[in-house]
Amino acid sequence: MPPNPTSYDTASEMAGGPGTLEGMKRLWTPAWIARHVAMVVLVVGFLCLGWWQVTRAASGNTLSFGYAIEWPVFAGFVVFVWWREVRHTLRGTRTERPTPAPSATAGSEPAAATAGVRRPVRVSRVPVPGDGVQDGDLAEYNRYLSWLNANPDAKPGDYPG
């Protein structure tokens, strides 16, 4: 029976798409194999620890009831993170088409390219000149910092001033 064209997903048949062999090759690199193995070891270990806590709880240790629930939750979290990373990696193989930026008319201000990206703000790093009077405590502190900079091996308690 041919697939229904209205519900058939052709995205998985694109070159490098999530369901193709080329897309799945990204999950068989040495780093991903280590992640798969770590996920299996952690899930099996957490479920074994959960079963161990169930047997302790059955023998009368009431505190183990909480741990018997906690360890499978940890295993579920590991599976969740692993699945999310797999999906993220497979979605990264698709080539996204950039949306064309709207053209600006003469006299109008250009629109921001991306809502989350802002232009850097330039801040003057030149000290603002005051009345010419310098605070005595500030001058003493600056001398202290200059002495610490000139004597990097000295302790702050060695300051002669």
Rank of each mutant, 00 (worst) to 15 (best):
residue 41 V to Y: 03
residue 41 V to Q: 14
residue 41 V to L: 08
residue 42 L to W: 04
residue 42 L to V: 04
residue 42 L to P: 02
residue 43 V to Q: 07
residue 43 V to W: 04
residue 44 V to A: 11
residue 44 V to C: 02
residue 44 V to Q: 00
residue 44 V to T: 07
residue 45 G to Y: 03
residue 45 G to W: 01
residue 45 G to T: 11
residue 45 G to D: 00
residue 46 F to I: 04
residue 46 F to C: 08
residue 46 F to M: 08
residue 47 L to Y: 07
residue 47 L to W: 07
residue 48 C to L: 12
residue 48 C to N: 05
residue 49 L to M: 08
residue 49 L to H: 00
residue 49 L to C: 06
residue 50 G to S: 06
residue 51 W to E: 07
residue 51 W to S: 07
residue 51 W to Y: 07
residue 52 W to Q: 06
residue 53 Q to N: 13
residue 53 Q to H: 11
residue 54 V to N: 09
residue 54 V to R: 14
residue 55 T to S: 13
residue 55 T to K: 09
residue 55 T to V: 14
residue 56 R to S: 13
residue 57 A to F: 15
residue 57 A to L: 08
residue 57 A to Y: 14
residue 57 A to Q: 12
residue 58 A to W: 14
residue 58 A to Y: 14
residue 58 A to F: 14
residue 58 A to V: 15
residue 58 A to N: 14
residue 58 A to I: 14
residue 58 A to K: 14
residue 60 G to K: 07
residue 60 G to V: 08
residue 61 N to E: 15
residue 61 N to Q: 13
residue 61 N to Y: 05
residue 61 N to S: 13
residue 62 T to D: 10
residue 62 T to C: 00
residue 62 T to I: 03
residue 63 L to D: 13
residue 63 L to M: 12
residue 63 L to H: 08
residue 64 S to T: 02
residue 65 F to S: 01
residue 65 F to K: 10
residue 65 F to H: 13
residue 66 G to P: 00
residue 67 Y to V: 05
residue 67 Y to S: 13
residue 67 Y to H: 10
residue 69 I to W: 03
residue 69 I to G: 07
residue 70 E to S: 13
residue 70 E to C: 12
residue 70 E to I: 12
residue 70 E to Y: 15
residue 71 W to N: 06
residue 71 W to I: 07
residue 72 P to S: 05
residue 73 V to M: 14
residue 73 V to Y: 01
residue 74 F to H: 00
residue 74 F to L: 15
residue 75 A to P: 01
residue 75 A to H: 04
residue 75 A to E: 04
residue 75 A to Q: 04
residue 77 F to W: 06
residue 77 F to Q: 10
residue 77 F to L: 15
residue 77 F to S: 08
residue 78 V to G: 03
residue 78 V to S: 04
residue 78 V to M: 07
residue 78 V to D: 01
residue 78 V to C: 07
residue 79 V to K: 05
residue 79 V to L: 15
residue 79 V to P: 01
residue 79 V to T: 08
residue 79 V to Y: 06
residue 79 V to C: 06
residue 80 F to H: 06
residue 80 F to A: 11
residue 80 F to T: 09
residue 81 V to R: 04
residue 82 W to V: 02
residue 82 W to R: 05
residue 82 W to S: 06
residue 83 W to C: 03
residue 83 W to A: 09
residue 83 W to G: 12
